[in-house]
Design a protein around this nucleic acid. Sequence first.
DNA 1: CCAAAAGTGTTCAGGATACACCCATGA
DNA 2: TCATGGGTGTATCCTGAACACTTTTGG
Lengths: 243, 243
Amino acid sequence: MRTAINPSISVDIVVFGFDGTRLKVLLVERQKLNSSATKEYKLPGSMIAENEDLDTSAHHTLQNLTGLNNIYLEQLHVFSDPNRISNEDDKKWIEFTYGITATRIVTVSYFSLVKINLSVLKATMQGKASWCDVQELKHVSFDHKEIILKGLDRLKSRMQSTPIAFELLPKKFTIKQLQNLYEAILGVDIDNRNFRKKILKYPFLIQLDEKEAKVNHKPALLYQFDAHSYRQEQKKLKKLKIF
Amino acid sequence: MRTAINPSISVDIVVFGFDGTRLKVLLVERQKLNSSATKEYKLPGSMIAENEDLDTSAHHTLQNLTGLNNIYLEQLHVFSDPNRISNEDDKKWIEFTYGITATRIVTVSYFSLVKINLSVLKATMQGKASWCDVQELKHVSFDHKEIILKGLDRLKSRMQSTPIAFELLPKKFTIKQLQNLYEAILGVDIDNRNFRKKILKYPFLIQLDEKEAKVNHKPALLYQFDAHSYRQEQKKLKKLKIF
DNA sequence: CCAAAAGTGTTCAGGATACACCCATGA
DNA sequence: TCATGGGTGTATCCTGAACACTTTTGG
């Protein structure tokens, strides 16, 4: 049963994925209201229902717009400029889509990470969502570009303090893939020997009896991330840091 | 000129202060609606105006309720449980205060730090706000205790990654005061020699030609935090961390 | 001169950085 | 057998942790 929507509040979700080389963000096409307009993209998002908390709204929205479900999600930031929806096309689209005259909408953004695998690709293609390169965003509606940049900041800092990177990799991955991910997102070069040494010290990376296949060079060993052993580890050691 | 308030959204502000020994949070007394009720306290907060962004609302609210102005503020977290206001007294208070029947209010919480000095004390006393010990919170309305705990988490982690602690100390402070602050908030013991060594290495702590006065032991040197030189420092060196 | 807290140095272990070659595979 | 990227070890430096005594003031 649907209840009323709240006309003041929306959620918008920044879903990042990694294609092995580049960081991608999931956008949905915004329906054109006149045929001459160029294609526009926006973040998956929607107005919230009055009987849902925001985390639930965000999950439902993702499920509905992209078919994605049960994925990593955290609150990112609230965008509340009273004039954030001032463009006429934006207003029309909102009126057309939700049947409300948007005087002002405050949006709560969410930050999310997924492994781009076949089932995810299938889901997102059915939902008419597309994976866009974060470095080349064009025709993004509303203030969604700003929201994506905020998400990118969050991603960079989270990656350096928690093992969140594994959310972006396949279940089985090579150390090199992990390193590529860090290099791509943080925009730095990392010494491969030192990176291995550091990362393989952790007990939560478990080496599988399996190798890359069909590569015309020495095949790399595959690893898996063990979230449980990571949490065990954390409970014990909390070291004091001062900057 | 006042515009309409938005009946769905409020801001609530967790203001932390440090009295030299204990961490304090600023609460305002909630007006009693019947004389038999016990005193209740809440976070400074209010419904937002339609023409203000949330940061502005938060600043105005603090100014109005506590006299504080121009202080450190950052977004903390959105609390949106549809039933977060279900208690009858809470509903009545909202109806009485804002003239609206609260079906549901989503609140955006803010995190804030101030130096408790004489002018701040004067302002907060006039505003009937009180500095309550974070460890002994009683009679806190709504879900404000949960919000305060979220703020405490944020404080702990921010203190370890940025020099935010100085917001809680007087302009001129001793190294020991700084250490006490870290120990009190993080709940740990810190070796005094190692702490000094670490902290005094930073160029943004500048030693003054001044000492504590009127203490019956060796008087400590006073220091000041130089935010500008901190920012310069940051621009240069950004070292890669992987957890 | 006594009580109280400030201030100071050294040693050791573990982590970060820099750096160059051999190995396994497919074509 | 060659091209390609995977995988490995060592030396040096730096940082964090542990630890006890002297100094300066007020009373």
